[in-house]
Write a protein that binds this DNA or RNA. Structure first.
Lengths: 334, 334
DNA sequence: TTGTATGCGTTATCAG
DNA sequence: CTGATAACGCATACAA
């Protein structure tokens, strides 16, 4: 038994397929009596529209693809919430593709978009080269893309982000204002745009305070719990120790907190800690984490609006949204 | 300028569209020279297959839909990893739909599947009524579904899960073995299948140890951080206090830990804590959380395999996988 | 090894 | 208000 088609419905209702289609899309244009007959036939057959046929005919899929580098990173979920809200308001279905930062998977989603399965894409990561071939404008009839959060200075597409360097500088500035002078930075993975921008902000804040950035105060990291723990080992082996650390993200800060606690090093009494992102668990860290909050839902919503604008044939320019320094219990006067 | 079609490519290469199609799908059946001409034309035009047309013709989409109740819950990410691995090995693209536990959104994904945009679906939640209309078997040509993790006793579809009641009993059994007698349970949201099953296991373990479950030891919760904090308030107000708590998930346990720390109540010295799920951050809690680990990647992979089996026209039966009690630092002798 | 022709299930145009 | 009918872009059976 195969799927019922519009023709099956038409036959049973005793009308033409055109009428069935109209019943489904412009009900008020068809006579009440006919409509009823048709809808009954629909129920009776268990008919469902064939999306492939519809897409082929209408030349659009009513779908947006959201490409995420790592779905396990809680940072993304609120962004997704913002996107979903706007998308469904516009009658689009939001689908998520998880690349796991693996090139082959990323390519699969590029192809997905190129094949016309989505009307546009939102990238929650710095777009790899593969995406760059896709023009921002509707030129060549290709689906447009908008990038969120991790964007370089000259990313091709329209982007939505915060000023990462300024935010990092604000975080470090907070530590400096509290009297800290020996401040370390645990960076993100090399070659990541965010890593660069936040490192840059860290250095700038030191400079502006008349402090000299020292290589030994710049710890390597990869945004994972483990590199936070590694940072603690390195911290503990130093003399003199930094009196504060600024982490390029919250997860690493959490790894540090766990190791510090286990080793009897108290935060913030012995050392102050600042994270970045304000992920869900930042509020329930021990101690609650001082961090930079990005307006995640708003970023997602804004990006989706820009994408819709472009899909609709309009133009759209990149947007930078405000961040916020959230002061909790992990920082204190030096 | 519209998307180039297979016809454009054919014209430029000076061949028929059939040959172009063959070049793309069965390259070795076409003469090397012709193939080269065609591939050049493809590059020159920037041609991409139209997925809608292909789907329509082939009657399948090469896509699996994974429906998640809450993408922000880190519990799901590893499951997704397991699914993705199997899916891409089978040449399918995995797409994620996030319902946010909202009915309208869930319906949207049901429709998505019914419309033939995916060849099958994996549900990471107890299927709502809407899904039940979809037969497990390929009857009526409807895409099959497999449910993971949150499944009731008589869920219609094929399922993959652990024995939640037994796992909960094991967790509580561990506390009992350590000499705890007054053990509280913080439950999940009402009407959730997991809530029921874990509560049931908790009670059973008490019974088996000759202890009597008491209503005042069964705290309400909703799987969120806040209800963990609320549980602490309730805990602190009790006399006598429980000497241990078993939480229906890790996130609530983490909320409790944060509140306890802030109030100077030490874990596990003053009270033992056990969670459920072994989410990513459980290892970096303070103290590291004793919990139940579900074989998440394996669950995802297994479910995907079952789904492929069913899509392929085969039969498949539900599977129950082993769990593991992970003992860390949040529990100790009473 | 290549070309021709048919149909996949819809929507939209145009008559009636 | 309703019905015929022509695309939409591709894969494949059949011919050559």
């Amino acid at each position: 038994m195969s799927r019922p088609t519009i023709e099956d419905v038409a036959r049973i209702a005793g009308v033409s397929i055109a009428t069935v289609s109209r019943c489904l899309h412009m009900p008020d244009v068809v006579a009440v009596k006919t409509r009823e007959r048709v809808l009954n036939a629909v129920r009776q057959t268990g008919y469902n529209l064939n999306a492939a046929a519809q897409s082929l005919r209408q030349r659009r899929s009513n779908t947006v693809l959201v490409v995420v580098p790592d779905i396990g990173n809680t940072f993304f979920s609120e962004i997704l919430g913002g996107i979903e809200a706007e998308a469904s308001a516009a009658g689009l279905t939001m689908l998520i593709g998880d690349t796991g930062r693996i090139k082959a998977r990323e390519d699969a989603y590029v192809r997905y978009l190129l094949n016309g399965r989505a009307d546009g894409a939102l990238l929650l990561a710095d777009p790899q080269a593969a995406w760059f071939d896709i023009p921002t404008r509707n030129a060549a009839g290709l689906p447009p893309i908008v990038a969120i959060s991790e964007v370089g200075p000259d990313s091709g597409p329209v982007t939505v982000s915060i000023n990462n360097a300024a935010a990092a500088a604000a975080a470090v500035g907070h530590l400096i204002a509290q009297g800290h002078r020996r401040i370390a930075h645990v960076a993100g993975p090399a070659s990541n745009v965010l890593t660069e921008q936040r490192l840059h902000g860290y250095r700038r804040a030191l400079h502006e305070a008349g402090l000299t950035p020292a290589p030994e105060l710049e710890f390597p990291g990869d945004f994972g719990l483990a590199s936070g723990r590694a940072a603690f080992e390195r911290f503990q082996a130093m003399t003199p120790r930094p009196s504060a650390l600024f982490f390029a993200n919250d997860e690493m800060a959490m790894g540090f907190l766990a190791s510090a606690y286990a080793a009897g090093v108290r935060v913030p009494r012995d050392v102050s800690v600042v994270g970045f992102d304000d992920i869900h668990f930042a509020q329930s860290c021990i101690p609650a984490l001082t961090t930079i909050r990005q307006p995640r839902a708003e970023m997602g919503a804004t990006a989706m609006r820009l994408l819709l604008e472009i899909i609709g044939g309009g133009a759209a320019a990149s947007v930078q949204l405000p961040y916020e320094l959230v002061i909790r219990d992990s920082t204190t006067r030096a």
